[in-house]
Design a protein around this nucleic acid. Structure first.
Lengths: 161, 161
DNA sequence: CCCCTGACTTTGCTTTGCCTAAGTCAGCTC
DNA sequence: GAGCTGACTTAGGCAAAGCAAAGTCAGGGG
C-alpha cells in the first residue's frame, strides 16, 4: 500500500457521502422545501407558494421527501374543517438543518441584499444569533483550511494495474 | 404592524439567503467541484474525472465558478512542462466548506455504505474528527429544533391590502 | 518544425425540471 | 345533495443540464 494521500487519483468517489446526500437533496426546490419545513410550514399550498414552485412540482418533491423519510405525512384537523395531511420534518430531515444554516450564512455574507438578510436565526433559549461552525472532537474551533482528509473504511481504490 | 411571526404568509422570499446561495451553488456538479477544490484538486482533467462529469460540463461550471469568485484561475508550471492554469478556492469559495462538511456529515449518518464512509475529516492541528455544529453567539450548542426565526432588516412583506 | 499533451470547444442528442392550464376527488357546509 | 375548498393529478410544452464523440489550439520536447 503506497502513499494513500498522494494517490488521490486512485480514490473512487462512488462512496462519497456528499454525493449521496446530493442524491437526496441535490436540487434547489427540494432544499427550499426543507427550508420551509424547518420554518414551520406544513400545508401543501403554503409549501408551493412560499417556495415559489408550481403545484405539480411541489407534489412530486414532497412525495419524494416522504419516500426518503425526510418528511412525515400526518393527518390533522383544523376546527370546523375536514381532516387533511400535513408534512412535518422527521429526525432524518431535521438533521439537515445545519446544511440550511450554513447555506443561509454564506448567502448572508456573500449574496445578501444591501438592506441585509430577510431573517436571522436566534437561539431559542438565549436569543443570541446562531451560526454553523466547524469543531473537532477535542473541542477546538476549526478553520475551513484546517482540515485534513483521511481515508475511511469505505474507501474504494481504483484498479491501478 | 401585526404579529410578524404569525404572518409568515406575507413574507416574501425574494430576499432569502438560502435561495441566493443556491443560485450560485444550487446544482450537484457545482457542489461536487467545490468538494474537489476543497480536497486539493487543481487541474481541469482531474476535476472532470473525480466528479464524474463530462468535459463540456466541467468547463462550463468551472468558468462560472471563476466568474462568481469562488475559484481563482492561476498560472502554474510543473517542472519540464508548459505553463498551465490551475483552479484554487478563493476565500469566498472556502467559506462554503461548512456546507460541504454538513452535507458529508448527513450522508455519513443517513446514506453511508455499510462499510462506512470513504473519507473522514481530521483537525489538522490535533487529528480529532471535525463536525459542523450549530452554536449561538453566547457560546451555547444549539439543536436543530432550538432555533427561532426572527425578521431581519431586509425582510419584504407582501402587500396585504 | 512536427508531434504530443492538457485543456478546452463544438455538435447533436437525451433527460430532467419546471411551467401553465385544466381536471379530479373527498369531505364539510349549507 | 350541491357546492366549496384544499390537495392534488394529468397533459402538453419549453428550457436547462447532461452525455458522447470529435475537433481545436497552444506551447514545450525531440
Amino acid at each position: 500500500m503506497t502513499d494513500l494521500l498522494a494517490n488521490r487519483d486512485a480514490w473512487l468517489m462512488t462512496n462519497c457521502s456528499i454525493a449521496r446526500t446530493l442524491d437526496v437533496v441535490g436540487n434547489r426546490s427540494t432544499l427550499l422545501l426543507l427550508r420551509e419545513a424547518s420554518l414551520g410550514t406544513r400545508r401543501f399550498d403554503d409549501f408551493a407558494a412560499r417556495v415559489g414552485i408550481s403545484e405539480p412540482v411541489a407534489a412530486a418533491r414532497l412525495k419524494q421527501l416522504v419516500a426518503d423519510g425526510l418528511l412525515e405525512r400526518r393527518p390533522y384537523q383544523e376546527p370546523g374543517k375536514r381532516t387533511r395531511d400535513e408534512y412535518v420534518l422527521t429526525e432524518k430531515g431535521a438533521q439537515l438543518v445545519p446544511v440550511l444554516v450554513a447555506l443561509r450564512q454564506w448567502g448572508d455574507t456573500w449574496a445578501a441584499d444591501p438592506a441585509g438578510p430577510s431573517v436571522w436565526l436566534a437561539h431559542h433559549d438565549c436569543g443570541a444569533e446562531v451560526h454553523a461552525v466547524l469543531r473537532c472532537a477535542a473541542g477546538h474551533d476549526v478553520d475551513p483550511d484546517g482540515l485534513d482528509v483521511r481515508p475511511g473504511p469505505g474507501l474504494l481504490l481504483a484498479d491501478t494495474e
